[in-house]
Design a protein around this nucleic acid. Sequence first.
DNA 1: CCCTCACCATACCGATCGGTATAGAACGTC
DNA 2: GACGTTCTATACCGATCGGTATGGTGAGGG
Lengths: 189, 189
Amino acid sequence: MSTRDRIAEVALQLFSERGYDAVGVAELATRSGSTKPTIYHHFGSKLGLLETLLRERFEDWLERLADIAQYRHDLPSNIYRLILAFFQFSQESPHFVRLQWSLWLSPRDSTAHAAVRPFLLQQHALLEQLFIDAIPDHGNLRGHHRHYALVLSGMLAGYVSAAPQLGQTLLEQDAYRLSKQFMYGIYAL
Amino acid sequence: MSTRDRIAEVALQLFSERGYDAVGVAELATRSGSTKPTIYHHFGSKLGLLETLLRERFEDWLERLADIAQYRHDLPSNIYRLILAFFQFSQESPHFVRLQWSLWLSPRDSTAHAAVRPFLLQQHALLEQLFIDAIPDHGNLRGHHRHYALVLSGMLAGYVSAAPQLGQTLLEQDAYRLSKQFMYGIYAL
DNA sequence: CCCTCACCATACCGATCGGTATAGAACGTC
DNA sequence: GACGTTCTATACCGATCGGTATGGTGAGGG
């Protein structure tokens, strides 16, 4: 693994564990077995490091997500597969997932929030679009696609981020339960 | 308003807007029309200021919440009133609510997260207890009280925090919709 | 052979960080 | 009138912050 990639990985881990502001460039250098000049050689600045990190990770993830969120006249299947994907992804890359959600709710005017914001808006837009596309088959979604997108991502953020803290693991069975719960919540309204 | 209270208020606002780490004590002093020595006189340290702030605000809020979350054999009413309370509270004290949720998902090992953690665990416990108490009347909650508490607080955190960012306002009608959606999600399982 | 590029090592920069020392002003209470 | 408490003002501390300067090594490609 290249020095560049080692730096990015260490940064991802430390940022997700202690927060962007609380981690100094000097520590990133030593922990990745590298030096400050090397970091600035590759990423230009501390913020550039964060942005690069997020961009590279989000590219793959948003591509995956776009496929899963593609409406195919079976909304329950979409919802289930979405939730499952988030669960699996947070087991593949727990640091990245934790970082993304923590930055999502992090203070509006923080440096770090500004860096994720565009990606999270894209992600949110994918969810909204799913609900918009499903309107012809599910009339009671009309006018409420934003509401449902918010609820879904809120549910996911809270569940995925907080569950590990409470000793709860993310199982397929939970994904199934969540999707059922969410869908029946739609049918009923 | 006393100097002490002005400091606390300014701190609450700045912490919620830019984050605990990103706000210096010097700025808190000037913005509250006071000085650093005064801040240290009242709160001992920057962290002490945050802790005091959270403790005082959470005392009232958790008391309110405990009353609302008291099970009275009408779970839908509990859920609706809980959601409504969160909506109203985030209009009364938007800074505090934003701060609390952002710290909830903030990195596990950050200084600031450690300061809210006990309060948020208390809050979570109130929700879990509600679902536990409702088991005799709603058998399908059995074994899943933690699941439902997580979903509810996740829904609330995401909705309350993200909605304003997307230009969505929090209306009573949304609270009603959320509670219905949540309850039907329970009935169905 | 030479140039570029990825990298290392050390040392430094000015600015800001959290926190304190010192000294004194305004205040109500005994 | 002495006293504790709540402040203000100024100046300072060592440590750490993000970022840079200098000077170099070693490998790959034209």
